[in-house]
Design a protein around this nucleic acid. Structure first.
Lengths: 198, 198
DNA sequence: CCTCTATCTGATCATTGCTCAGATCAAAAT
DNA sequence: ATTTTGATCTGAGCAATGATCAGATAGAGG
C-alpha cells in the first residue's frame, strides 16, 4: 500500500477540464518539433501541466494518443480538401486542388502528418481513426470519378485514386520535391493518370 | 574509477571478428520482426551475443546502425532491379520490372525496407547511404529515360521517375495494395506516366 | 618481446512507457 | 442536504532503453 505524500496540484482546480484535446494539441506540436523517434508521452504530459500518468487514462498508451492525433489530422485534411475543391469548377482542377491540399497539410501540420500516414504507428482498428481515414480517401476517389473519362469503370477509378494518393504520400515522405516543384508535378501526374496509358 | 568484476566472455575469442555485418543482419531481422517502435539496440547486441555497448563502437548510436541497414538495403535493391530489368528487352518492360522489384524488396526484406525510405530515421549525410540511395534512384531514372518518348527532356524524365518512385513507396507504406493488385496497378501507372497528359 | 590500436566488456546515468493504489471532485442518487 | 458513485488526476515504482565511461583483451607491427 502506498501513501500519497505531495498531492499539490499546480492548477486552479484538480480536474483539468479539457485534457484530451490539450494532449492532442500538445502531442502534435511535440511531434512537429522533435519527430517521432524523440516523441515522449511524459513530455506531452509535462507540457500540458499534468502528471505523467494522466494521458494514459484517456488514451490508454502512447499508440492511443498518436491514433487520436492522426484521426484529428484526417478530419482537418478532409475539410481542407473540401474547401480547396469547392473553389474550383473544372472536375480535373478539383482533383488537383485536393492533391495540393494533401501536400499543404504535410507542410503546415507536420505533427499530424507524421502519424496520419503511418499505419504501423497507430491503432488502425480504432473506430474514429478508421472512419475518418476511409472517409477522406473516399471523398478523393469520388472527385477522381467525376474527373475521369465517362466510360471509366469503378476499378479504373480506384486505380487512379490509389496511385495519386500514394504518389502524394511518397513525394513528401521521401522528400523528393520542393514546394516550388509540387505544382507542376501534381498537374503532370493528374493529367497523365486521368488520361491513362495509350 | 570503476573496476571490472566479471570479464567472462561468452565466445571462443574475445574479439568477434565480423561484428558490424552480424549487427546489420540481426538488426534487419529485428526490424522485420518487431517494427521500428519496438526496435532496440540492446536486443540486437543480445542476439549477436555481445555486450550492449559493442554496437556503439562500430555505429556510434542507434541511428548509425539503422543507416547502415538502409545502405545495405539500397545495395540489394539496385542489384535486384538490375537483374529484373536485364531479363526484359522492351524499355517499358524494364521500367515495370524495376517497379516490381521495389515492391518485392519491401515484401521480402521488410527490415531493410522499414528504414530505407524513412529519411528521418537515418543519418542522410552518411556517405555510403547517400551514395547508394542516389545511385539506385539514378539507375531508375535512366531506365525511365530510355522508355520515354524520344523528345522528352531531362526535366520531364525526372518528373516521371520521381512520380513513379514516390508511388511505389506510397503504395506499400500506406498498405494500399495486395500483391495481386500490384501488377495491374504498376502497368497502368507506368503506361500512363510514360504517355503523359493529353 | 613490447608497444600500439582497435575491439569489446560491465557498470552507471538519465529517461522512457506502463501500472497501481490512492486522492480529488462533479454530478447523480437518496 | 447528504451520500454515493464514477470519472479524473496524482505520485511512486518497475523494467527497459540509449548513451557514455574506464578498463580489459587481443592482434598487428615494431
Amino acid at each position: 500500500m502506498r501513501l500519497m505524500q505531495n498531492p499539490a496540484p499546480q492548477r486552479d482546480s484538480y480536474h483539468h477540464g479539457n485534457l484530451p484535446q490539450v494532449l492532442i494539441r500538445e502531442g502534435a506540436a511535440l511531434l512537429a518539433e522533435r519527430g517521432i523517434d524523440r516523441f515522449s508521452m511524459r513530455e506531452v504530459a509535462r507540457r500540458a501541466g499534468v502528471a505523467v500518468a494522466a494521458p494514459a487514462h484517456h488514451f490508454g498508451n502512447a499508440r492511443g494518443l498518436l491514433t487520436a492525433i492522426a484521426a484529428e489530422g484526417f478530419g482537418q485534411l478532409a475539410q481542407r480538401q473540401a474547401t480547396a475543391a469547392a473553389a474550383m469548377t473544372d472536375p480535373r482542377d478539383k482533383v488537383i486542388a485536393r492533391c495540393r491540399a494533401y501536400i499543404a497539410i504535410c507542410v503546415e501540420e507536420p505533427g499530424q502528418a507524421l502519424v496520419m500516414f503511418r499505419p504501423e504507428l497507430v491503432n488502425d482498428s480504432d473506430p474514429l481513426f478508421q472512419e475518418r481515414a476511409v472517409q477522406t480517401f473516399a471523398l478523393f476517389r469520388d472527385a477522381v470519378a467525376r474527373a475521369a473519362i465517362p466510360d471509366a469503370n469503378a476499378s479504373q477509378v480506384g486505380q487512379i485514386a490509389k496511385t495519386l494518393w500514394s504518389m502524394m504520400h511518397g513525394l513528401q515522405a521521401l522528400r523528393m520535391i520542393t514546394d516550388a516543384e509540387a505544382e507542376g508535378l501534381i498537374r503532370f501526374a493528374v493529367g497523365a493518370m486521368l488520361a491513362g496509358p495509350r
